[in-house]
Design a protein around this nucleic acid. Sequence first.
DNA 1: CACCGTGTCCAACATTGTTGAAATCACTCG
DNA 2: CGAGTGATTTCAACAATGTTGGACACGGTG
Lengths: 258, 258
Amino acid sequence: MTDPNESNARALKSVERSFRIVEHLRETGGATLSEAADDLGLAVSTAHIHLSTLVETGYVVKDDDVYRCSFEFLQTGGRRRDEMALYQAAKPELDELQAETGEHTNVTMMERGYAVQLYKSESPESIDDDASLGDHFYLHLTATGKAMLAECADDRVAEILDEHGMPALTDDTITDEDVLYEELATIRERGYSINRGEHFPGVCAIGTAIASEPDDALGAISISGPRSRITPERIEEELAPALLNKKNIIELKIRQHG
Amino acid sequence: MTDPNESNARALKSVERSFRIVEHLRETGGATLSEAADDLGLAVSTAHIHLSTLVETGYVVKDDDVYRCSFEFLQTGGRRRDEMALYQAAKPELDELQAETGEHTNVTMMERGYAVQLYKSESPESIDDDASLGDHFYLHLTATGKAMLAECADDRVAEILDEHGMPALTDDTITDEDVLYEELATIRERGYSINRGEHFPGVCAIGTAIASEPDDALGAISISGPRSRITPERIEEELAPALLNKKNIIELKIRQHG
DNA sequence: CACCGTGTCCAACATTGTTGAAATCACTCG
DNA sequence: CGAGTGATTTCAACAATGTTGGACACGGTG
């Protein structure tokens, strides 16, 4: 609890360093040797040997003095996603749901206290949100995140909140624990969660958890779009029933072994 | 040139080791400490500290004694993909092309001498191929790969073949350099490439390169499906014109700055 | 309860990361 | 053309850190 970013005593420092470099490359979208060395406070020669090693492993590529994360990351991540029963079962249903509603649909999984976007079916009729494949979102401020939290035991929820806190990304983000716990109770009763611009301003969504028995992995699906279109009436009459219908179908598919 | 798999003299051995472990986890889909140590010939204590470090960085997760690659890989890879102009321009067009033809459509980019799958628009009317997101394919045996090779200078082609060879994955894979060079010439004339079961038996495809001027990154798109449906007549009359039409649209979108 | 097969921790040693400085390279501008 | 600048690459020496076997703890089984 002393130094959140500083390395654990008995961990491989050079490996940690290499991954810090990778993260830097991801955030900047690519950097030169000297940029990376400067930004991370490393000796150039140190940064150099790390980057060279990463290039040799194939996880970094060098274009003309610029180092970038290679598509090996996409491969390693893509394999993991594509073999998830949840993804396989959900994808075609989300495509249908997207076509029926004209809104984006999503599937996420919980990992390390985050809601991870596995797939987004984009509606040509809607506008682009900024959610990228594999993005990690806080659980307390997305529709899928809250739906998954609602399925967790209270002490697990407390653990997660303790680790990640409840940072606000918009004015509407829930930042009070008690309010959140009450909302989770509502979600359990109602069967689906609602996000009213708590993550991206003006973007609303409804979500529901998927109980995937075989492995007890926890996931959720959602429908999202601009606030003007995701009205309370439309949720109640059209979107929620459609979402819950798909939830059932997906759970059945997984249970019949997906 | 002595030991293809053995480490470069001046590279960080512990970092190389950690990535070999990551690769092992990817291939096995997850492993316990002792499995990983055995399979890679490491002392358990060594494997242990590597895995612990990887868990600490967030790139590996531990479920109940099983270590797996985490979704950080998907995030790092997803970011890179989602910001590619080629992907952004191609995705909606490929979805349309898939709907029009009823066949799978794909976009790949060349990296490190491989064709990397960035996106696949799956047709509900077709059957599943085994290509996963981010998969790396040899260039000489896929439609997109051959289309991209045809755009490369001959010495670059020679370099790639020298590095990766021309392994055969089916009876129909081209394994003779001269045959390949002739085929590349044909592709340049005709404007598109054809794959007749050279990668997966029974799976055929046609592809064409995308010249993405801004960054001179090299990519390609394709239509693929079962041999019975991708007939020479259908290619000539329907598929090739549709593919080339999309090629034009995508190139225009990229040029108008995508 | 003793016996495995595990995973975890530890301290000693040798290996290997790190570093500054020197060498090389690629450009720009006199 | 050639000096000058900024960046990358290489090197050798030292200190730091990765590796290892063995000791310890744990959970299940016979």
